[in-house]
C-alpha cells in the first residue's frame, strides 16, 4: 500500500512534461506581448491621470498625433519620411561599404598569416574606442559633410564584421577542407566553395552585431552639422524641449533597429538553414 503513490507520481510526471512544450512555446510570446501592453497601459495611465507633466512624458495619443503631423508638415524643414530616409540612407551606405570591405579583409586575415599580422592589431586597436572619442578627429580630417557621418557608422560596423569573418574562417572544420582538397579543390576553390559558405553563419551574426552598433552610432554621427535624420531630429527637439518629438524619435529608432534585427534573423534562417543543426 505505502509503495503505491511513488510509481503513480513517477508516471504522472513524464506525461505532464510531454504535454507542456507546445503550451510553453506559446506562453513565451504571450509574456512578451503582455509586457509591452502593460508598459503601454502604464504609460497611458500616468499621463491620462495627469501624474506626470506632458513636458516630461507626453501621452501615447499625443505621440501618435505628433507622428501624423510630422508626416504631413515635417520637423525642421523636412518631413518625417525625409528624416527617416536620411538616417536609413546613411546606415545603408555604411553597411554596404562595411560588408564589401570587411568580409574580404576578414577572409584574408583568417587565411593569410601576413594579412593577420598587419590588420589584426589595427582592428583591435580602434575597436574598443567609443565612436564619440574619435568623432572630433574624423571631423578635422573629413569635414562636416555626409562623408564624416557615414564614415563614423562605417567604422562601427566594420570591426565586428571583420572580426567575426576572420574568426569563422580560422575555425572552418579541417575535415571539410581536407575532403575538398582530396576532391581536387585548388586554393581559390577552397575559399569559394568551403571557407566562405562555412563562415557564412558567423558572418551574418557579425553583420547583425555590426548593424546594432552602427545604428546606435547614428545619433553620434548626426551630431555633425546634420539638417536631416532621426538622430538630428531627437537632438534638435531636445534643445527646444519638444518632448513628444524626442519620444517619437526614440520609439522610431528602436522600432527600426528591431525590424533590422528580425529581418537579418530571417535572412540567416533562409541563407544558412543548417546553422545550429547537427548534421
Amino acid at each position: 500500500m505505502s509503495s503505491l503513490p511513488v510509481p503513480l507520481q513517477a508516471q504522472s510526471q513524464p506525461a505532464a512534461a510531454a504535454a507542456r512544450p507546445p503550451r510553453r512555446a506559446l506562453s513565451t510570446r504571450w509574456i512578451s506581448t503582455l509586457t509591452v501592453l502593460t508598459l503601454l497601459a502604464l504609460w497611458w495611465l500616468v499621463t491620462a491621470a495627469g501624474w506626470v507633466e506632458p513636458l516630461f512624458l507626453p501621452s501615447p495619443g499625443d505621440i501618435v498625433r505628433k507622428a501624423a503631423s510630422l508626416l504631413s508638415q515635417g520637423y525642421m524643414d523636412a518631413s518625417l519620411w525625409q528624416h527617416l530616409g536620411a538616417s536609413l540612407g546613411r546606415i545603408g551606405v555604411a553597411l554596404l561599404a562595411a560588408v564589401v570591405t570587411a568580409i574580404p579583409l576578414g577572409i584574408a586575415i583568417g587565411c593569410n598569416r601576413v594579412a593577420r599580422g598587419i590588420f589584426d592589431p589595427l582592428i583591435e586597436f580602434y575597436r574598443p574606442i567609443p565612436p564619440l572619442a574619435y568623432l572630433p578627429l574624423i571631423v578635422i580630417w573629413c569635414g562636416i559633410g555626409e562623408l564624416s557621418k557615414v564614415l563614423l557608422i562605417y567604422l562601427a560596423i566594420f570591426a565586428p564584421v571583420a572580426i567575426a569573418t576572420a574568426t569563422a574562417v580560422r575555425t572552418v572544420d579541417p575535415v571539410k577542407l581536407r575532403a575538398a582538397q582530396s576532391l581536387g579543390a585548388s586554393r581559390t576553390q577552397l575559399i569559394a566553395h568551403v571557407i566562405v559558405p562555412s563562415a557564412l553563419p558567423e558572418m551574418l551574426t557579425g553583420i547583425r552585431i555590426g548593424l546594432g552598433v552602427g545604428w546606435s552610432t547614428l545619433v553620434a554621427a548626426e551630431l555633425i552639422a546634420a539638417t536631416r535624420g532621426l538622430g538630428f531630429m531627437v537632438q534638435s527637439a531636445a534643445q527646444f524641449l519638444v518632448t513628444d518629438v524626442v519620444v517619437l524619435g526614440i520609439v522610431l529608432i528602436a522600432l527600426i533597429a528591431f525590424a533590422l534585427e528580425m529581418g537579418l534573423r530571417a535572412l540567416q534562417r533562409k541563407l544558412v538553414p543548417w546553422h545550429g543543426k547537427s548534421y
Binding site: D173, K176, A179, A180, G184, V272
Partner: peptide, 29 residues
C-alpha cells in the same frame, strides 16, 4: 589530389549543398 579519393570517419559533407550537389562536387571542381 583528386586521383586519391578519401572517405572520412565523420562524413565531412557540405551542408550548404544537397546530396546531389555533394556527390557532384568533385566533378564541379
Amino acid at each position: 589530389g583528386a586521383e586519391r579519393g578519401v572517405v572520412f570517419q565523420d562524413d565531412a559533407l557540405l551542408p550548404w549543398q544537397t546530396v546531389l550537389g555533394n556527390v557532384a562536387f568533385g566533378l564541379a571542381l
